[in-house]
Design a protein around this nucleic acid. Structure first.
Lengths: 199, 199
DNA sequence: ACAACTCGATACATCATTGTATCGAATTGC
DNA sequence: GCAATTCGATACAATGATGTATCGAGTTGT
């Protein structure tokens, strides 16, 4: 039995390394981020890092694993509460405003991870699985909320793919030029499309 | 006057460095690419590189400059030839197919550049200018081709922004998962939207 | 043809990064 | 409590990257 904990638990350390890595990746880019910098940002030395991960690759794999579930869980939770398209979009808008991003991570990091993994041929399937899960989820959301209002969409899966492309695209453009790309561009587009589809 | 040129011109060297840099950036990512690797890929040494550019930043700025003009010029040229939406989309589809995209590798560079510049606060305006130019161009295309058919779009500028977001989004997703994201996803979406807007 | 100039390779010094090996302190099992 | 184990800091060797300074070959103007 220990009297008072003076050393952080292993999971604590990993968590701190995650956060630090997210910050550093976002700031410098994954490729330009050194292990040393990441460890230092977390308040540790390289020793701690290598004690927890085999290297940069394993860290990133762990980051993906960790955060994917979180974001999907959030959407599913929203789905149980808001049953019409308008409500759902409104709810999303609200969380968007409050949080950093519906996917749970800052946009730059999101893109950065996509690129990093897309480049690592052997690891691409992981990210692909994630994209497919997101699409399936959006398709479900469309189908579910549409049905609640009595409207029909011919192909929810394709509609989901389009919406996700639109979302990621606007996210990218907002990175480049926030001034000409308002935060709610995506939602505006969704509403426009819904209006189009209804007429 | 020299008899026979045995040394490449300065512009030749720069051009070769551009191409090599594009390859290396695509393969390793901008952050992870070293000057040495780039120069070597072009068949030169670092000496040549530093003789032509002050550093990585300046190289990238030059690459952007180069890329932008080329792509915009191409679209404008298309615009003079194809005056209806259908023709234009068809023409785009054709050039897209012809472009080197055997493994979907070229788009990586596009995203990579966006991220790199988005991160460099001081340089962001350049890329923003480019995004705005693209949007303006697409808006013009929409307005121009629509008018030729006698249709009206309420807000061509906004429609242009949406289309670009859609395009970049699909490009991103194709990087992740080519199997579930066919190369013509964007064009399919454009056609769907046109059909929606017409009804 | 000759002098001035330009380009790119080579060499060099400095510094950053990587991965491992080892040691001491903290923690847990018994 | 005490031994065994775990965690993370430190030291270390090897390698890679950066930028500059310099030299020789190539090129241009007159």
């Amino acid at each position: 039995m220990s009297r008072v904990r003076t050393r952080p638990t292993r999971d604590d350390t990993k968590e701190r390394l995650f956060e630090a890595a997210a910050r550093v990746f976002e700031e410098r880019g994954i490729g330009a981020a050194s292990i040393e910098t990441i460890a230092a940002a977390a308040g540790f030395t390289r020793g701690a890092f290598y004690s927890n991960f085999a290297g940069k690759d394993e860290l990133i794999a762990a980051m993906l694993e960790d955060h994917v579930e979180r974001s999907i869980a959030h959407h599913r939770e929203l789905l149980t509460r808001y049953r019409t398209p308008d409500d759902y979009v409104a709810a999303l808008r609200a969380t968007e405003r409050g949080r950093r991003d519906p996917l749970g991570r800052a946009p730059l990091l999101h893109m950065e991870l996509i690129l990093y993994v897309a480049r690592a041929e052997k690891r691409r399937p992981e990210l692909a699985k994630r994209l497919r899960a997101r699409r399936k989820l959006v398709a479900e959301i469309i189908a579910s909320t549409m049905q609640a209002v009595g409207e029909g969409v011919r192909d929810p899966a394709w509609a989901g793919a389009m919406l996700l492309a639109l979302e990621d695209g606007f996210r990218l453009h907002r990175l480049i030029d926030p001034d000409s790309t308002p935060a709610d561009s995506f939602f505006r587009a969704v509403n426009d499309l819904r209006r189009l589809a209804e007429s």
